[in-house]
Design a protein around this nucleic acid. Structure first.
Length: 430
RNA sequence: GUGGCCGUAGCUCAGUUGGCUAGAGCGCCGGGUUGUGGUCCCGGAGGUCGGGGGUUCGAAACCCCUCGGUCACCCCA
C-alpha cells in the first residue's frame, strides 16, 4: 500500500511542481511569448542553468541576490559554480564568448534560483521569460524591448498593469549623482539608525525604493537621478519616451525605481500589477546594461533586456480570472465492442491524432458506462463510440457531451466531421 | 536569515475537559447499467493524525525539538 512519501521524496523547501491543468496555462503563455519574440526578430537562446560564480558577481557584489541568495556549489572538478539567479548575466556571457554580429536579439524561458524564504509570488526556483538585445545603442531598441513585453501582457488581456520608467544615468552622470546622493542622505541619517547608514555607504541608490516609512521622508526629498543626467543620457531618455508615446504605450515616470542589480544604466523599467494582492507586485522588468559585456572581458557593447516572472503572471491572471484556456480534446473514443473492439479503438484514436485532432480513450477494458464517465471527465467535446449496430454500417456513434445530442457518422468520414467542428482559436494542448 | 499563523484520507475540514475500532463532504473505484456521461441509489478502497522524543493507566489533543506549508520583513520575478 502506498505510504506517505518520506520527507526526502517531497520537493525541497521553497520549490514546487507545476501540474496539469495549470501547466497548460504555462504552455500557452510561453507559446504566445515565443510568437511575439519571433515576430520581432528574436531567436531563442538555450543556455546552462549554472555558470562560473564570477559571471553572476558582475551583477553587483552588494546586491542581495549575489551576497546572500546565490546557490553556490563546487563541482567534482573543483570549479566554483552557481545556479543562475537571473537571466541577463548568462546571456551577456554567451555574447562575450561567441561574439555574434550585433544586433544580437535573443529570447529565453528559463528557471532562476535564489536561496530565500518563499512567500506569495516568490520561490526558490522561479521561471522567467526574457529578451535581450546586445550591440545597439539606439533608443528605438529600448522602445522595442518595452513594447515586446507590453504587447505580451496586452495579448493576455491583463488589466491593472502599469509601466514604471526611469533613467539610471550613464557612466558620465552616475558617479556625480551617487556622491551627491550619498552626501545628502548621510547628512540626514542621524535619526534613522545604523542600518540606514550602512546601506547608504554601501550603495546609496539601493535605499531609494525603500518601503520603510521613516526612510521615505528623507529619501523623498533627496536629489533625483533624472535631474543629474548627462546631456546624452537625457536626450536618450527623451527619445525613449517619444517612442513609447508614438506607440501609445502609457507609462509613469518613477524617479526612485532602481531595481535590484548594479549593472543597470540609463533606461530602466518595471511592469507592476495591482491585480497581485501581495507584496510582490513586480510582474517583469529590466533595463540597459551598457557596461556589462566589457566587465566580462568583452568589447564595450550596449545592451538592454528584461525578465518577466511566469509564476507572478499566472497569479495576476488568476486574480483577474483571465487565464488563457488550453485546447480541449475533440473526441474521447469509447469501445462498445468488448475485447473484440480493443484493437479497433487503438487504431481509431491513432488515426484521429494523425489527422491533427485531439483524441483520448480509456484503458483496461472498462465497462461502457465507466468509459462514458471518463469521456465526460476528460472535457472532450464529443464521445465517439464503436458500437455493434453502427459497425454493421461502417459507422460510429458520436455524442455531443454538452448537449447530449447523438448522431451516427461514417467511420471513414469521422476525422473530417470532427475537423469541421473544431473550435476556432484553440491552442497548444495540455 | 527574522517574525506571525497552520500541519488529521487525493482535496476541504470536523474531532467535546486527554478516554470506544479516528469521522464527514467532495473526489476516486465498483455495482445498479459491457449500448451511453453529467443527476440519483448502493457498496468499496484510501490514514505512520507531518516526524522524533516526553508527560500519562491512556495522546490526534498537553510539553519540547524538528521538518514542511503559508503570510510578512529584507529584497526581488
Amino acid at each position: 500500500m502506498p505510504r506517505v512519501p518520506d520527507e526526502v521524496f517531497r520537493a525541497p523547501k521553497g520549490v514546487h511542481d507545476v501540474l496539469p491543468p495549470e501547466s497548460g496555462t504555462w504552455a500557452t503563455l510561453v507559446g504566445r511569448f515565443a510568437d511575439r519574440a519571433a515576430r520581432s526578430g528574436y531567436g531563442l537562446i538555450v543556455g546552462p542553468v549554472f555558470e562560473h560564480v564570477e559571471v553572476f558577481r558582475r551583477v553587483g557584489e552588494h546586491t542581495d541576490v549575489v551576497s546572500k541568495e546565490m546557490y553556490e556549489f563546487e563541482d567534482k572538478g573543483g570549479r566554483a559554480l552557481a545556479l543562475r539567479p537571473e537571466g541577463t548575466a548568462s546571456v551577456v556571457r554567451a555574447y562575450v564568448q561567441h561574439r555574434p554580429t550585433p544586433p544580437w536579439k535573443v529570447w529565453y524561458v528559463a528557471p532562476n534560483f535564489r536561496y530565500e524564504r518563499a512567500q506569495k509570488g516568490r520561490y526558490r526556483q522561479h521561471w522567467q521569460l526574457g529578451a535581450e538585445v546586445l550591440g545597439v545603442d539606439d533608443p528605438a531598441v529600448d522602445v522595442e524591448v518595452i513594447a515586446l513585453l507590453d504587447g505580451f501582457y496586452r495579448d493576455l488581456g491583463l488589466s491593472g498593469v502599469t509601466l514604471a520608467l526611469n533613467s539610471m544615468g550613464d557612466a558620465q552622470s552616475r558617479p556625480g549623482y551617487v556622491s551627491a546622493l550619498r552626501a545628502y542622505l548621510l547628512d540626514h541619517a542621524s535619526s534613522l539608525g545604523s542600518e540606514f547608514r550602512e546601506r547608504v555607504e554601501a550603495n546609496p541608490m539601493r535605499v531609494l525604493d525603500t518601503k520603510v516609512p521613516d526612510w521615505q521622508d528623507v529619501v523623498g526629498r533627496a536629489p533625483q537621478l533624472t535631474e543629474h543626467l548627462s546631456e546624452p543620457a537625457r536626450e536618450h531618455f527623451e527619445q525613449v519616451q517619444e517612442g513609447l508615446q508614438a506607440l501609445k504605450i502609457s507609462y509613469e515616470l518613477a524617479p526612485r525605481l532602481v531595481r535590484g542589480f548594479d549593472y543597470y544604466t540609463r533606461t530602466t523599467f518595471e511592469f507592476q500589477s495591482d491585480a497581485l494582492d501581495a507584496a510582490q507586485n513586480a510582474l517583469g522588468g529590466g533595463g540597459r546594461y551598457d557596461g556589462l559585456a566589457e566587465e566580462m572581458g568583452g568589447p564595450a557593447t550596449p545592451g538592454i533586456g528584461f525578465g518577466a516572472g511566469i509564476e507572478r503572471l499566472v497569479l495576476a491572471l488568476d486574480a483577474a480570472s483571465s487565464a488563457p484556456t488550453t485546447r480541449r480534446l475533440d473526441a474521447f473514443v469509447i469501445n462498445g465492442l468488448g475485447d473484440a473492439g480493443s484493437v479497433a479503438t487503438t487504431v481509431l484514436v491513432s488515426e484521429l491524432r494523425e489527422e491533427g485532432l485531439g483524441a483520448d480513450r480509456a484503458y483496461g477494458g472498462r465497462s461502457v458506462p465507466a468509459q462514458w464517465k471518463a469521456a465526460d471527465r476528460s472535457g472532450a467535446r464529443y464521445g465517439v463510440m464503436l458500437g455493434r449496430d453502427e459497425a454493421a454500417r461502417d459507422a460510429v456513434a458520436v455524442k455531443d457531451l454538452e448537449t447530449g445530442e447523438q448522431v451516427e457518422v461514417p467511420e471513414n468520414g469521422l476525422a473530417t466531421w470532427l475537423s469541421d467542428r473544431r473550435e476556432l482559436g484553440s491552442e497548444v494542448a495540455r
